[in-house]
Design a binder for these strands. Structure first.
Lengths: 299, 299
DNA sequence: ATTTTGTTTTTTATCTACAATAAACATTTT
DNA sequence: AAAATGTTTATTGTAGATAAAAAACAAAAT
């Protein structure tokens, strides 16, 4: 098999669920643009919808005959891109307890377990290597460096440098910039979560990511943006498997964010730096406390 | 063809030129370690040397019969690794004048021009993407972002954050650390170059790279190290094609380095930061002045 | 007992082929 | 004329195959 048609299937599902009976559909290029795929794929979707009797399609006439049911959709296993499958599978392995730092990573073995070709695994590993968790010896195997204490400290150091920079840039944004509105909205979201903290403290990590992303966008620096992407992915999986979402810690972080937001809005660079540093210090603590015990001991 | 035996050929050349008639050669594992290859490859080298009548090989007896001549060596085209060939070829293209920012990069076309398979080109592009000069649209082509003014500014910003961090760490190294000796040696090299600046100003870029690498090693941070690797590669090619090595600029940089070294040796953090900032400011200027004119205009 | 050599197995690096997807070109409709 | 549809071509994503290189295992020599 050369390539799975996951782009088609995923877009098909996305389009099907949004269909409403008796409505007319727009032109092919418009559908393609809506879905973010090529017109070829859009046409494949229309063809299938037509074959399934969901729409009547004759050139420009495209009418929805019936609402698609769950059985019309492709199962979720078939809509995930290979890259996502490999990523999930790999992250699960390296964050599991029996993944000891220093362990070798075997491309062929990984590929077989995931049920994919070696090329895709190789490419994934190359891309993933920028996160600093694995390392390659040329002509030889990859080594798992692991989610160790050193990793966390090095990550925290860079994050602090970048965030201080971004926060300062944020403070210099002109007042009519969209970011200020977004920041105000975000304060409301923080306050809402705080009001119902006992129920919602587990949702904090998502809000946290969005908050820091907003700050980092102010720096308009591709290296900072890339680094934050890496952090976001690592944290996403890390907190998914290590559910150490302590209520107190998250509540404190929300308060820190609120102070940080106030400092940004004041435009006072000294205040911004201070609030940023306070928050980064406790974020570092949180990160260190969340380390897997085995990895921590290895130091 | 599955794979070129460039590792073997390159190591063979390296080993052959170091042979001296009538000397006895060490054990296979030792040869392998010296060359940084596996014993299998070391044995392949010995086999070939034996077949060519350069050594007599009988189990533990390995005697050099004659000095290998140039004709015994593999030509340099055959010893370059595919990765290096692709890298050189690609960098040449994107730093040439007709490579406009926004240009599409075609994997198949690149592969054909370089005379290689698409997989290797793909893997190279994925690895190279971390330098921020190219970007991929999923299921579609790569785009050349180019060596533009924005790129240079973003690079300079991160470099400054990292170098200030590393310099501060360097200042905190214990006095018995090897780095201090290396730093003193480096001062001598700077003074030597300065004494003969009219002849040697073109060698500065190599010294410059080594100097900053020494500083960055003090931070012991994989992200900083990786970033500096990226900078080094980009600069390596950039200065190779844009030979704007002005004598005055390099002479000034040497003086700044000497001040910087003195500040580091003083251990005074304020002095270190000051000297570092002075140098970084002029390094930024040099970088901006070296931009290709087309790219600069696009801003 | 440890190191060295001899032999076999495993794994990586790379090429080629092909389906999915995007993109380009041609024709028709408004 | 501009936008839509119909058709063809180009390009990417992925699998599978194979030589090179590394690594593991086995036997011999110090």
């Amino acid at each position: 098999m050369a390539r799975q048609n996951t782009v088609f299937k995923e877009a098909y599902n996305r389009y099907a669920v949004a269909l409403r009976t008796d409505t007319a559909l727009p032109s092919e290029p418009e559908i393609a643009a809506q879905l973010g795929v090529s017109r070829s794929t859009a046409r494949a979707i229309l063809t299938r919808l037509s074959e399934e009797g969901i729409i009547r399609w004759n050139k420009r006439q495209k009418t929805v005959l019936r609402q698609p049911t769950d059985r019309d959709l492709f199962p979720s296993e078939e809509t995930d891109s290979l890259h996502d499958i490999i990523e999930r599978s790999f992250m699960q392995r390296i964050l599991s307890d029996d993944a000891a730092p220093g362990m070798q990573i075997n491309e062929l073995e990984l590929a077989r377990e995931i049920g994919t070709g070696t090329t895709s695994v190789r490419e994934f590993l190359i891309r993933f290597s920028r996160f600093g968790l694995i390392e390659k010896r040329p002509n030889s195997h990859w080594t798992l460096k692991g989610f160790t204490r050193e990793f966390a400290l090095e990550l925290a150091d860079v994050r602090e440098m970048f965030e201080l920079h971004s926060a300062a840039e944020f403070g210099r944004l002109p007042r009519d910039n969209q970011a200020w509105t977004d920041l105000a909205t975000m304060r409301e979201e923080h306050l809402a979560m705080l009001a119902d903290i006992n129920q919602r403290f587990k949702d904090f990590s998502v809000l946290d990511e969005r908050f820091h992303l907003l700050i980092h966008r102010a720096s308009k620096n591709r290296f900072i943006a890339d680094f934050y992407d890496a952090i976001a992915i690592i944290f996403h999986y890390h907190y998914q498997w290590n559910k150490t979402a302590a209520r107190e810690r998250n509540e404190r972080a929300i308060h820190e964010h609120l102070d940080y937001i106030a400092a940004l809005e004041s435009g006072d660079q000294a205040a911004i730096e201070k609030a940023c540093r306070v928050h980064l210090r406790s974020a570092r603590q949180t990160l260190l406390q969340s380390l897997p015990q085995i990895a921590t001991e290895s130091v």
